[in-house]
Design a protein around this nucleic acid. Sequence first.
DNA 1: GCAGTGACTAGTA
DNA 2: ATACTAGCCACTG
Length: 122
Amino acid sequence: MHPSGSRTVAGDRMDVYGLIYAAVKRIPVGKVTTYGDIAALAGFPGRARQVGYALHALESRDDTQDIPWHRVINAQGEISKRSDPRFERLQRILLEEEGVEFDSRGRVSFKEFGWRGRMGMR
DNA sequence: GCAGTGACTAGTA
DNA sequence: ATACTAGCCACTG
């Protein structure tokens, strides 16, 4: 059934990236969440870096438009530093177009715009 | 295979 | 507030 090399981790042949992207797609318009939360939501608590890596990989994919990657920011409420600053500006623009506001320090209030998939709920 | 790198984070000082 | 650390893990050379 499974192609050679298929490895089951938690029971399913799961593509880590796919699960991460699926979690990102759940973020509502006008809301933001963190890398760490997406990781936990996707079933990989503690692997925030992998979320960042997965999103970075989007740059070379076509389905970028289907995934609201811009709604993922770091735990400090800021847009994470990128190797290419152009994407930082783009991310902020996309968020502002959805109504997300930034303070003078370039930070988003999780209180107003934060979304936590249904864990914690606050 | 090991070392460096990276869209991360929580902890400590 | 900043700086450094350990933990995390895929990818690259």
